[in-house]
Amino acid sequence: MYNDNNAQTIVEYIKNFTRKNSLFMLAYGTGCGAIELPATLTSRYDAERLGVRGAATPRQADLLLITGYLSTKTLKRVIRVYEQMQDPKYVIGFGSCTINGGMYWDSYNTIKMLDKYIPVDVYINGCMPRPESVIAGFKELQRLISEGKADGATKYKENLDWYRENQKKVLKNWPLVEYNW
């Protein structure tokens, strides 16, 4: 009975429903995009009505929001934060800088494509994306979760070698322990 397909589908449906309606968000706000988040979360745009809520630490968070560019120095912290988060976890790349480098496309010190270092589920385009687009991004992520397609964490586990290789290319002093799962 417990391995019955319908029962599993119902359980998955409930899980996905709660996951999409309760996103604890950790905003990694070192880029300029962080300034859009107070507007998104407070009274004018109120992302809390969608169940999006700030989390204080990576352990509690489901959703990592990378707001803008990442220098190689902050990339270390982002990888560490991402690996501290508990499954299921999602990443939103926020702003042009996470897609192709944006205005930092020829900088010597920033990474250009975030997807090469950690798996990104949803991108929000723009420089800066306004709160409307941020909320549209949350909606898109919720759609992906309810369809079961937001599987960045499994992608990361399966292709860990590829991600590690890319990470080590830009991080000369490797700061993290090696995992063997």
């Binding site: 899980k15 709660t18 109120d46 809520r53 508990q86 499954d87």
Partner: peptide, 27 residues
């Protein structure tokens, strides 16, 4: 939320949070 002039989450939001937290992996 209403005092801060927001719409606010639905009143069953805490149940969603708790079910989600219980269905998360904890390693």
């Amino acid at each position: 939320a209403r005092i801060q002039n927001r719409v606010g989450p639905p009143i069953y939001q805490n149940f969603l949070d708790v079910i989600k937290l219980y269905s998360k992996e904890t390693s």
